[in-house]
């Protein structure tokens, strides 16, 4: 295989692997920009994936699976909101709790309902989001350079992949060009000012965590019904935390979030690709090092060695209305 087609294959799997990260990181963006830290992305994604897998297996429809995932993830996001907005609990503690509840209940319920060792039954092609072939994909396949790029890299992904990348400009537009977005960012920086303007801080933050719930539901659906054909226990495997890392890496901005997710997806794809094969100059890179690289990069960034990641100022602080 020549270098070019290898590269296209690598980029193709980069796109596939970065989509769940992108959904989850954008989800976290809404919540954290409104001042509610969310380390429960992992749990909401997992619960969403389970709901998608279970509902699609029972109904046979991918769309029912999607609806179920969005509902379940949003419910869990509301629990997080209830604890951290209404009851002013510790947002980190609440996020940790969500992760555990999701990790345990997906296995217990999966086993009780389907008795397949915690996985949901495999769904047929109707229960999945299949590949969409863009127009002329087959016709252009033979054209050098442009052909493989168009027909392999751009075409042939599921609907959710295109949706994820469309959500990037959409999120940018919402945050920076709408009244809701302005208020959302304001409430994450200075909730007292928003409150003074007569806008409910709590309701605004609730809307933000609902956005988070919907998007983590999409992330879960992608894992269960597009990348796989059903839910497998613990299938998020730390992606929620990588998404969190990507969000920090991108300094809580939508377009950089996309590039951070693509970078982490690329590292993942690369580590699968070069597993065991020695590289020129460096020699054999341990797989474990490649897996740890996103986390190491995030720590280095947080320490301020490459730029500075400054979180929303009111993040993590419950808002107490003055009486």
């Amino acid at each position: 295989m020549d270098l070019f087609s290898t590269l296209v294959l690598l980029l193709d799997s980069t796109v596939r692997l970065s989509v769940p990260l992108l959904f989850a990181a954008l989800a976290g963006l809404y919540s954290e920009r409104s001042g509610v830290f969310d380390i429960g992305l992992e749990g909401k994604m997992l619960a969403g994936a389970f709901a998608a897998g279970a509902a699609a297996a029972v109904s046979g429809s991918a769309w029912v699976g999607l609806m179920a995932a969005v509902l379940v993830s949003s419910f869990m996001a509301l629990v997080h909101g209830f604890a951290s907005i209404t009851h002013r609990g510790n947002q980190i503690v609440s996020g940790v709790a969500i992760n555990f509840i999701a990790a345990g209940s997906t296995i217990i319920l999966g086993q009780a309902w389907f008795s397949q060792g915690g996985r949901t039954p495999l769904v047929g092609s109707d229960g999945r989001f299949g590949a969409i072939h863009l127009p002329f994909a087959d016709a252009l396949r033979g054209v050098p350079v442009v052909g493989p790029l168009y027909s392999q890299l751009l075409s042939g992904h599921s609907l959710l992949v295109y949706l994820a990348f469309l959500l990037v400009p959409f999120t940018w537009w919402v945050l920076f060009r709408t009244r809701f977005g302005l208020r959302l960012r304001a409430v994450g920086e200075n909730p007292a000012a928003v409150d003074t303007a007569g806008i409910s801080v709590q309701w605004l933050r609730y809307r933000a965590v609902i956005c988070t719930g919907v998007l983590t539901g999409l992330a879960g659906t992608y894992l269960a019904l597009a990348q796989n054909a059903g839910f497998v226990k613990d299938m998020t495997a730390g992606r929620g935390f990588i998404a969190l890392a990507a969000l920090i890496f991108a300094k809580w901005r939508p377009v950089p979030v996309m590039f951070a997710c693509l970078l982490f997806g690329f590292l993942d794809a690369l580590s699968i690709r070069i597993q065991g094969t020695p590289l020129p100059l460096i020699g054999r890179v341990p797989v474990q090092f490649m897996q740890a690289l996103p986390y190491i990069l995030t720590v280095v960034l947080l320490a301020g060695f490459i730029g500075r990641a400054i979180p929303p100022r009111a993040g993590g602080v419950p808002y107490v209305k003055e009486r």
Binding site: F82, A97, I101, A103
Partner: peptide, 19 residues
């Protein structure tokens, strides 16, 4: 895995929702 759920619930109610 039931313990993991209980653990999560304890963290939720004794931690985040302590008030």
């Amino acid at each position: 895995d039931m313990i993991v759920i209980i653990q999560g619930l304890v963290i939720l109610f004794a931690g985040a929702l302590e008030h």
